[in-house]
Design a protein around this nucleic acid. Structure first.
Lengths: 122, 122
DNA sequence: TACGTCACTACCCTTTTGGTAGGTTATGGG
DNA sequence: CCCATAACCTACCAAAAGGGTAGTGACGTA
């Protein structure tokens, strides 16, 4: 459990993985899609994810350089964790909100991936 | 998702929650069962879990003092997260191990809780 | 010739987290 | 009178995590 937690904890990792769930993306593309994150942080977190074999890096020897990141199988399998995190998290948020406001989260992405995995197993 | 993650991240929280999954426990009891953790950390992490409404604190006005901690409903519902973390984590560990050794994790506790929840729903 | 693009790295600084060592309260037992 | 007990709390330090700024190289465009 601790191993699993340590793999996904990091200020930007969920957001990065979120990006990659919809397919391979370039460095700059991820960077543009996540506001408030610096390039340094992106590199750092991607390095860590790579070390844990969650993402792979594909370098195209071009000028200007192009690098694409995508989830490994191990990375895709994280989606069950994302799913439960999201379910519990939304539950937590709705019961938390002191103002009585109901937050309606959308977890389209993860349910999609869940379905995808279920489909593959058939 | 980030909310869910932030609730359970903390060096000792998983271990503390682990203890509480088997029922209410006293401060000193938890402390004895978790090796390497100092009392300060136990207090601190329990405080945070209490703030997040994951555990409740019951104080018996006795001398010497007695305080019992137990999971709230919200806390018990975390077990689905623990379960997926454990499943993915063990998968991660077995595929990781460079020596080719197969690590056989035991997740008796969480499967038990899962079963319990399933039973309640019937 | 200067200027921008991409995917980084190096250096340094701040914030957060965790650890160590001590103190506190009130009571019962020796 | 002194000590042990349970459940803490506090001050101070160290380590880890996160962040800001600047700079690289090779090329295309203005």
């Amino acid at each position: 459990m601790e191993a699993a937690l340590s793999v996904i904890s990091g200020k930007w990792k969920l957001k990065i993985l979120n990006q990659l769930l919809t397919g391979a993306k370039r460095y700059s593309e991820i960077n543009r899609n996540i506001v408030g994150m610096t390039e340094k942080m992106l590199s750092q977190q991607l390095r860590e994810l790579e070390e844990d074999r969650i993402v792979t890096r594909k370098i195209y020897p071009e000028i200007p350089p192009r690098v694409e990141y995508s989830l490994t199988d191990l990375g895709k399998e994280l989606s069950s964790i994302f799913y439960t995190l999201e379910m519990w998290g939304s539950h937590f948020m709705t019961t938390t909100n002191a103002n009585g406001e109901i937050v309606q989260p959308d977890y389209t992405c993860y349910t999609l991936i869940q379905d995808e995995i279920a489909a593959e197993k058939k």
